[in-house]
Amino acid sequence: MEIENTGKEKDRFIITVTGRIDAVTAPEFETRLLDWINAGETRLIVDLGGLEYISSAGLRSILTIAKNLKTKQGKLALCSLRDTVKEVFEISGFSTIIPVCESVAAAVKEK
């Protein structure tokens, strides 16, 4: 898994994740995002266009991050989900609790 801050548009902090979020890499994913949140970035767009795989461990981390942002009146948007990742979000019902956008550009336009 590779994770990096790839920009900022308006007040939206953009993060790109590639590779796999599994039980081994999910803790690092969660720690990196929580570090950015604690540094004051509370409006996050996470570009998952390069993410090929996610398991329940990764969903657990996303839920932790989303709940943390709620308490700070922040916002989390995920975008550009590929087929397998999208399927996992749909089966688990996560696509109904976490906003999912077609692209980073579409996520930036959301209020």
Binding site: S56, L59, L63, K67, K70, I91, S92, G93, T96, I97
Partner: peptide
């Protein structure tokens, strides 16, 4: 899998 964000548990999802 229909629970809201605060009620949501990940246990059992695997």
């Amino acid at each position: 899998v229909a629970a809201g964000i605060y009620e949501r548990q990940v246990g059992g999802l695997g």
